[in-house]
């Protein structure tokens, strides 16, 4: 101790103390790392919210109001959650070209990072469905057949047997599901975009949704099999009737014209 007190005024003492303090801080840091990390994340989160807010006020506020409270041109976004933002912005539906009941799918404008920032901001306005993680929407190991049954009970009435889409009232429509990513299908079911009703976790658990996504992956993707030949749009008898008339009867009439036509006469001159 004497030694220590003797050297306490050593010029390097301050340095030693500093190092010691740092070491202790480091140790404490190590011990309480999660808490501290959370703090750091909060910072990142608030940064994202800040960024999202900026993006929001430029791209969204004109319709949805400066605080997301909604205007006559767009609904309130309080409580819609980051899942809704990820769907609407991620599929290019938002920002909309003009307000209305039907938002068509378009090339998306924001990057995934920007979309996440917007999502963070909207989520901060009020609790809502959170953007799903991959293991939530991944169709890996899901039951395709069960998915088909669920799809026919819950979805086919608007989106057609194999997700080709269909008409709703007054010019609105349920879009085609060919090529929609599993994430976006999941989010659509979670949040109920535009006129689509939602199918929340409480009535359609994650597993059901995965089954449906797996079913759509089988019947409504670019790789979907159509054993019988041309799918004719998957639209059923109207398309089949048109094909039958135009190509079937058309070909047969062409053949009949050939059968009945006179053979060319020899020219005498």
């Amino acid at each position: 101790m004497k030694k220590l007190s003797a050297r306490r005024r050593h010029p390097l003492a301050a340095l030693v103390v500093l190092l010691f303090a740092l070491a202790v801080t480091g140790g404490l840091y190590a011990a309480f790392a999660p808490a501290d990390k959370a703090q750091a994340d909060t910072t990142a989160q608030s940064l994202a919210i800040e960024e999202g807010k900026k993006l929001y006020s430029v791209g969204c506020a004109s319709c949805h109001g400066t605080g997301g409270q909604g205007t006559s041109d767009g609904p309130s976004l309080v409580g819609v959650g980051s899942a809704a933002v990820d769907f609407q912005v991620g599929t290019g539906r938002m920002p909309a070209q003009q307000p209305g009941a039907q938002m068509p799918k378009k090339p998306k404008i924001y990057t995934q990072a920007e979309t996440d920032q917007l999502g963070a901001y909207i989520a901060s306005l009020g609790a809502g469905p959170i953007k799903p993680t991959e293991d939530q929407y991944s169709p890996e190991g899901a039951n395709v057949a069960k998915g088909g049954e669920l799809f026919r009970t819950n979805c086919a009435q608007c989106h057609n047997f194999t997700g080709k889409g269909g008409a709703l009232t007054g010019g609105k429509y349920a879009p085609e599901l060919d090529g929609v990513t599993p994430k976006h299908i999941y989010e659509a079911m979670q949040t109920g975009p535009q006129n689509m009703p939602s199918f929340p976790e409480s009535v359609m658990p994650e597993k059901n949704k995965q089954d449906i996504i797996a079913y759509l992956g089988t019947v409504a993707s670019g790789e979907s099999e159509s054993p019988g030949g041309l799918e004719l749009g998957g639209l059923g008898p109207v398309a089949e009737g048109l094909f039958g008339w135009v190509f079937g009867l058309g070909a047969l009439i062409a053949v009949a014209i050939w059968v009945a036509a006179r053979t060319a006469k020899a020219k005498k001159s």
């Binding site: 009970t153 819950n154 109920g192 009703p197 939602s198 199918f199 929340p200 409480s202 009535v203 059901n208």
Partner: peptide, 19 residues
């Protein structure tokens, strides 16, 4: 019909559709 479980009021949110 999705889960074969009886429904509670709190399961049914505004805007959702259940059979």
């Amino acid at each position: 019909q999705n889960t074969n479980e009886p429904l509670r009021p709190e399961d049914v949110g505004v805007g959702s559709l259940t059979f």
